Simulated scan of single mutants.
Amino acid sequence: MRRLFLLFVFALSAGGPFRTGATERGTTLVVATYNVCNLFDTINDPGIADEVPTPEAWQRKTERLGRTIGAMAPDVIALCEVENAGVLDALLGSPGLAGEGYRHIHYDSPDRRGIDVALLYRADRMRLTGAEPIRMATDYPTRDVLRAEFSVAGATRPLVVYAVHLPSRRGGYHRATRAREEMAARLDAHAAADSAAATVVLLGDFNENPSSRLVRRRLEGWRPLAAGAHGRGEGSYAWHDVWLMFDQIFVGRGTVAEEARVFLRQGMLTRTGRFEGYPDRELSDHLPVYTRILLR
């Protein structure tokens, strides 16, 4: 497992996240995505297969997530595997995020496990002008796609963000693959309709690598910003001693954006035992991914 850790020696010494703000060319924003791995509350809800953490585990996870996201300092971040608006309220009140001006967007979805996507955004830098869940007409009950539109000071074009968590292989490989293909095609159609008038960003857990057949076939019009990092052996999720870049950020071909980077700080990886070098599951089994984009 040690070799997983060694791939990220540079990332640990790479310094903080990108700075944001107005420039002569436009306004820069940090956008990010993070699968926060079963962010459930301590209430057992009938009808969904939710996990119920102890109050102590819930508090530790919430506080660690708040500090992690706060250290990354994104202007907008997609969160995957969020149970409800209540856990987001608690997260925004935790150390690292309390008082930082973040608000959240969330809608309940038909996922069997009760996990949804959500967005956090800096209300002092971005004004929400519209949001909606996009229900994917599929026989595979899963998360909705969340679409949000923002007006950003210093930018003439609006920003449209799609938060995505495509189905995993848990419900059967072939069935889940078909659902991912269908959802990715519909996501592409929705986002393409926005791209003429807005800067569009697709971000979330795609359960696929940047080089996958799905990305090449269904998202060919979008630039996978994490492709370079994945090509160097980096990733956001570890499986069988291999780093996978399932957490991705896509932008339109004409959007000015930095290469996406994996965010890693001391304490985010398991230190000892069988899963040494893997993401610490008490925090999340994924690592966040972020980039900086330029809005004009």
Rank of each mutant, 00 (worst) to 15 (best):
M1T: 10
R2S: 08
L6Q: 12
V9N: 04
V9E: 08
A11L: 03
L12A: 01
L12F: 13
G21P: 05
E24H: 10
R25V: 12
G26C: 08
T27W: 02
T27R: 07
T28V: 07
T28I: 10
V30K: 15
T33Q: 00
Y34D: 13
N35T: 02
N35Q: 02
C37K: 09
N38D: 06
D41E: 08
I43P: 03
I48G: 04
A49P: 06
D50R: 10
P53T: 09
P55L: 06
Q59H: 11
R60D: 13
I69Y: 06
A71F: 06
A71R: 14
A73D: 11
A85F: 06
V87T: 08
V87F: 08
L88C: 14
A90C: 09
A90K: 05
G93P: 12
L97P: 14
L97M: 12
G99I: 11
Y102N: 14
H104F: 08
H106M: 14
Y107N: 09
R113P: 07
D116T: 08
L119F: 14
R125N: 10
M126E: 14
L128F: 12
G130N: 09
E132S: 15
P133C: 15
M136R: 03
V145R: 00
A148P: 09
E149H: 08
Y162M: 00
A176T: 10
A179F: 05
E181F: 06
E182A: 15
A184R: 00
A191M: 10
A192Y: 07
A193L: 13
S195P: 04
S195H: 04
A196P: 03
V201I: 12
V201C: 06
L202A: 00
L203A: 03
G204L: 00
G204A: 01
G204K: 00
N207S: 03
P210A: 06
L219A: 04
G221W: 05
W222E: 01
P224H: 02
A226I: 05
A227N: 04
G228C: 07
G231N: 03
G231S: 02
E234P: 03
G235V: 06
S236F: 02
S236L: 10
A238E: 06
A238N: 01
H240V: 13
D241E: 13
V242A: 08
W243H: 02
W243V: 02
F246E: 00
Q248G: 03
I249N: 02
F250S: 05
V251A: 10
V256F: 08
E259Y: 08
A260R: 03
R261H: 12
R261Y: 08
R261L: 13
V262L: 04
F263A: 15
F263H: 13
F263D: 12
R265Q: 15
R271V: 15
E276Y: 05
Y278T: 08
Y278H: 07
E282W: 09
